Amino acid sequence: MTVPDFPLISVVSPVYGCRDCLEALVDMVRAAFLDSGLDWELILVDDRGPDAPWDLIVELAGLDGRVRGLRLVRNHGQHLAIWAGLAAARGDWVAVIDCDLQDDPAIIPALHAAAVKEGVDAMVVDRGSWSDSAFRRWASRTFYRMVDLLAGIQLRNIGNFGIYSRRMTDTLMLFDEQEVFLPVMVNLTGLRTGQMQLDRDERLAGESSYSLRRLVSLAIAIIIRFSDRPLKLSVIAGLLFSGLSALISVVLVVAWSTGAFTVPGWTSTILSVWFLSGLIMAVLGVHGFYVGRIFSEVQNRPRILIEQVTGGEDP
Rank of each mutant, 00 (worst) to 15 (best):
C18Y: 05
I108N: 01
A24N: 00
S13R: 06
I236T: 10
L188S: 09
L188N: 08
R229N: 09
V184Q: 08
W54K: 11
R166M: 11
R229M: 12
C21F: 01
L305D: 15
K117I: 00
V26Y: 02
R136I: 08
L44G: 11
S249A: 13
L172E: 06
L22F: 02
I270G: 02
V309Y: 04
A205M: 02
F135M: 12
V67Y: 01
G85A: 09
T267G: 01
A89K: 13
R90G: 14
A122W: 08
W40T: 02
L198A: 08
S10C: 10
E41H: 09
A106D: 02
G292H: 06
L70T: 11
G119Y: 06
V67N: 01
S272L: 14
R136A: 15
R127A: 04
R19Q: 08
F275I: 07
A84R: 03
W40K: 03
D103P: 03
D132Q: 06
V58E: 15
D148F: 13
A52F: 09
S140H: 14
L149A: 11
V186H: 02
V15N: 01
A95N: 07
L240M: 10
G206C: 05
I220V: 15
M196D: 00
T258W: 07
D5N: 08
R213E: 15
I223G: 02
G288Q: 01
K232W: 12
L70A: 08
G37I: 07
M168N: 06
T310K: 03
M146V: 11
G159R: 03
V67D: 00
V180M: 08
R156C: 04
V309G: 03
L188I: 07
S277W: 04
T142F: 14
I43Y: 13
G37K: 05
L276T: 14
G152C: 12
R145C: 12
V251N: 06
K117S: 12
Y210P: 13
V147E: 14
D20T: 02
